[in-house]
């Protein structure tokens, strides 16, 4: 991968990351992020289901 200096000016001060290091890191990424974000979303959905089925519905119909 090559990093190009940009027209857009946003990278006038490129960071000092080495491309080889970045390549190595990107062999693992985004496995950890997927695991963490996936776990968070799963917990939220399970929590939502529990409230919907065990708190809301037993409190009676809404018509």
């Amino acid at each position: 991968m090559t990093v190009t200096r940009q027209h857009d000016g946003s990278t006038d001060e490129p960071d000092d990351l080495k491309e080889a290091d970045l390549e190595r890191a990107l062999r693992l990424v985004p496995r950890g992020a997927a695991a963490l974000a996936g776990l968070a979303v799963a917990l939220i959905i399970v929590g939502w289901l529990l409230v919907y089925l065990l708190v809301f519905l037993p409190r009676g119909p809404v018509n």
């Binding site: 990351l17 190595r24 890191a25 990107l26 990424v29 985004p30 496995r31 950890g32 992020a33 974000a37």
Partner: peptide, 23 residues
Amino acid sequence: IFTIGASLEIAARLRGGKGLFGW
């Protein structure tokens, strides 16, 4: 949360972070 999670994971791996969650 995924894109930023992955961006942070890049930083963590560069700093030697290991594992599925340990990073």
